[in-house]
């Protein structure tokens, strides 16, 4: 029987021309981006190595946001330890030299507004040159305000940004792998906790559980904050872990800034059979920058020049 072929690799489309924005040579020199060597991904990497990568991801988030002059700071900084563990702790299978290789694991950032952390992680893994981070949100940049698959940026599996939708797409990828392609790929998805207010999350959770998608691991960035305030003041989402458990997920509750706990949780998720896993990772928005930590007012704004200098100094 034949197979219909579809370009499953993104093809640049839309209005975007081939002319990419050019970052300032001064900044590239200041951040020493030209001499950067990507971090390696291995289960053998020490926790300290991953922590170093997380720190570099956080620096890149600050650098790209201050250049962009708009964008989300709090969530990306808070989830950096998780992202560093996923990409540099040997959790995810990928090859930046063959970004679309068939056997890769899939990553879906359902909370698309946390794009700066995804771009910073991909750059630190070698999917793109680091200087491109300085083009965030600029005209014709591959680094759209929310991830856009139409830009063809390696490592961006799907466009996300309308909250709740990425989770359903991740479920579809897991369904394709488990039942149609019958391979051993795993699908990793990160959602925000404010995002849990979207009904599609729970539809997708019900679907994933019904179809026993043990190749799916969802991580909830539990920072208790959203753009208008703290969750209970906007819309209560607790009890988060119990909800996922009730929906049939194997649920693990961890400190999302503890690299050993994150590693252990992903290892545990790997061993669960016949049900999907949800890791509820307690984090602080804006962590560990002193003037941002656990402050919801940093959800949707970038640092100004002075704040960026201060934040970068704290990350030395």
């Amino acid at each position: 029987m034949a197979e219909l072929k579809f370009h499953i690799y993104p093809i640049e489309s839309g209005f975007h021309g081939p002319k990419r924005p050019t970052p300032s040579p001064d900044l590239i020199a200041k951040y020493n981006y030209a001499n950067f060597k990507p971090f390696k991904n291995s289960k053998q990497n020490s926790d300290e190595y991953i922590a170093t990568a997380a720190k570099e991801i956080r620096r890149d988030i600050i650098r790209s946001l201050v250049e962009a002059k708009s964008g989300h700071s709090g969530g990306p900084l808070g989830i950096s330890d998780v992202m560093a563990t996923l990409y540099f702790g040997g959790v995810m299978r990928y090859d930046p030299k063959q970004p679309w290789m068939e056997s890769r694991d899939r990553f879906v950032l359902s909370a698309g507004h946390m794009a700066p952390v995804l771009y910073a992680t991909l750059a630190n893994a070698g999917f793109m040159e680091k200087k491109e981070l300085l083009t965030l949100r600029k005209l014709n940049s591959r680094l759209q305000g929310h991830p856009g698959r139409d830009m063809g940026l390696p490592g961006i599996e799907t466009s996300t940004g309308s909250l709740g939708q990425g989770m359903g797409i991740a479920v579809g990828m897991a369904l394709a792998d488990k039942y149609v392609s019958k391979n051993d790929h795993r699908v990793y998805c990160i959602t925000g906790d404010g995002e849990l207010q979207e009904g599609e999350i729970w539809e997708a959770a019900m679907f994933a559980s019904h179809w026993k998608l043990d190749n799916l691991c969802v991580l909830v960035d539990r920072n208790h904050c959203q753009i208008d305030g703290r969750n209970p003041d906007v819309m209560e989402v607790d009890p988060v872990a119990d909800k996922w458990k009730a929906f049939g997920f194997h649920t693990i509750h961890i400190n999302g800034h503890s690299i050993p706990e994150i590693r252990a949780a992903y290892a545990e998720a790997n061993s669960v059979k016949e049900k999907p896993t949800c890791i509820v990772a307690e984090t602080y928005m804006g962590h560990p920058i002193s003037f941002m930590n656990d402050d919801y007012r940093w959800h949707g704004k970038p640092p100004n020049k002075e704040q960026a200098e201060k934040a970068l100094a704290e990350l030395e």
């Binding site: 579809f6 499953i8 899939r106 599996e157 799907t158 939708q165 989770m167 359903g168 797409i169 991740a170 479920v171 579809g172 990828m173 897991a174 369904l175 394709a176 792998d177 149609v180 392609s181 009904g199 599609e200 539809e203 997708a204 679907f207």
Partner: peptide
Amino acid sequence: ATATLVATGLALS
């Protein structure tokens, strides 16, 4: 809604 999203994931695979 979710069926459409799952279909998207299937298509991207």
